[in-house]
Every structure is written in structure tokens, then in C-alpha cells.
Amino acid sequence: MRSRWLMFAITFIAILYFYMRDSLVTTSVIGTAITFGLPLAMAAMVGIMCERTGIVNIGIEGTLLVSSFVGFFTASASGNLILGLISAVAMGAISGLLLSLLAVTWKMDQIIAGTIINILATGLTSFFYKQGHTIPSTFPEVDIPGLSSIPFFGPVLFMHGPLTYAGIILIFVLWVALYKTPWGLRSRAVGEHPSSADTAGVSVIKLRYLNVAIAGAFGGLAGAYLTLELVGSWDRGFSAGKGFTALALMIFGRWNPIGALGAAIFFGTAQAVTNQLMITQVVTIPQQFTNMLPYVLTILILAISAGKVRAPAAEGQPYEKEQA
């Protein structure tokens, strides 16, 4: 705990120092860190929600890919971004339900089930992809009145698109739901010891279905953010491995929504700083070394601050009611 506060203090002082030296660049770097980190954080939530209830989900990449695809082409065909967003979230939920069907009902090996989703998503989106479609616009930046004029914090936190705000708020909502509500307690119980939860009257199957579907919807939101707010286009292989990075951030954040958000922002900062080293050209370090920065920093922080990391006990095991 003390090392965590120490890290906060160091980060704060570092940001203050750089802000005094060059406010424009510092603001830009931290703002970009959020742009880099947020889709990873949202994708990590998919993993957290699934694994907390005992389902391993390595199909996040597929969920991102297929939901961004459906979101983009719905928005493109209808000319309506909201419709695109809704369809992306729905598609995400459907991919979650598919995972439940494979892993919960059919009790398939969950790694294979996730792989099926990844392969399906790659195949289907590649097959149906047509070049030359565009969307009328992307979700515009919304400056929150008042808050956005605060120096530093305004541009960093309160000048983003609506899906960024939605993503950040939902991450905190998920944290509250997971730790402070009966639903959260039951979900975690199902992930740790499903037979006890069952004895206490919790429907393991129903809860797993529900949570994996909600998790999928979260992935759909991440996909919609990538295509409808951040980039504004779609290409084959659009998610570019973000679903896998998200899994690592989930572990880095110890299966805790806020932890994973912090991990993602940290990773995003390392990426933005790497970029900045090349942008400002003050120090000409060989590019191969700057390339290592996000990874080296991650290892360092893990070594300093991470204690023992423990996954939910029942993850990966299908639930057999009559087992005992």
C-alpha cells in the first residue's frame, strides 16, 4: 500500500515538473495517454467481468473486431452514429452469449471457445468487408462547460468524445457494482467457489450467462469507441491485438476495474512518452531503445509494486451441478 502512494506522489511531482517546463507538450502527452489507454481499459473490463465469474475469455480480440465492424458498417449504411453504437454494443453482447453457449452450456474448453470467437471474427469480418465505405462523421469532442477550462485537467480529462466519458464512468460503475452490491458479491462467489454459491441459492449458470453477455457489451462499446470516435474508419484486422494486450492489463490490474484502468493509462502514458521522445527530437536515442520503453517500464513497475497476483479460483472450469 505504501509503495502505491509513493508511486502516486512520484507521478504527480513528475507531471507537475514537466507541466512547468512545457505545458502544451505535457497536456498533449497525458491527453494522448488516455486516448491510447482507454480502449485497452475498456477491453480489460471484458476480461475482468468474465473471469470474476469464472469464465476465461481470450476472445476479447474477436469481440472488438466484430463489434467495431458491425458498428462501422451500420453507421455507414444508415448514416446514423447512434445506430452504429447500438449495433456494436449488441454485437458485443451476442459474441458474449456465444462464448457462454460454448463454455457454460456445452462446457467446452474455454481457451478453445475464445479462440473460436477470434477465428470466427477474423474470418467473417474479412469475408464481408467492402472497401470504400465511409461514415458521415465521428462522435464529436464534447467540452464539459466549466471543467474543461481548468488548466491541465480540462484538456486532459474534459475534452473528449462522449464514448470516452461513457467508458470511464462505466469502469467506475463496474467497480462499485463488483464490490458494493449483492450482484457483485454473487458474481465473485461464482468465480471463486461456484458450488458454495449454488448451495446459497445463486444460479451459477444464469449469472455466468448474464455477466459474460454484459462483458461482451462492454467489448462492443470499446469496438464502437475505436471506430466511431477515435479513428473514423475500419480496416481488416482493425483491433490489431488490443484484445490480447487487455488481458495482460487485466492481470496487471489484479482483476480490479480501477486497477486495470490505472494499468491501461500507465501503458498509454509510456506509449505517448515514447512518441514524444521521437516528436521533440531533443535526445536522439536509437529508435530501437525508445521502442522498448513501454515494455521496460511495465516490467519495472510490476517488479516494484506488484505483490502476489491471484486469479479467481474457479476460472476456466465448467460448472457441474451434480459433481460432488
Binding site: S28, V29, G31, T32, T35, F36, P39, L226, L230, V231, G232, S233, D235, F238, S239, A240, G241, K242, Q271, A272, N275, Q276, I279
Partner: peptide, 11 residues
């Protein structure tokens, strides 16, 4: 990686 390109452009 289009998302990386977009984020870097924003920076």
C-alpha cells in the same frame, strides 16, 4: 494498427 496512427496524429 489504425488506432495507433489516429492516437499519434492526435498527439
Amino acid at each position: 494498427d489504425p488506432a495507433w496512427g489516429a492516437s499519434t496524429a492526435a498527439q
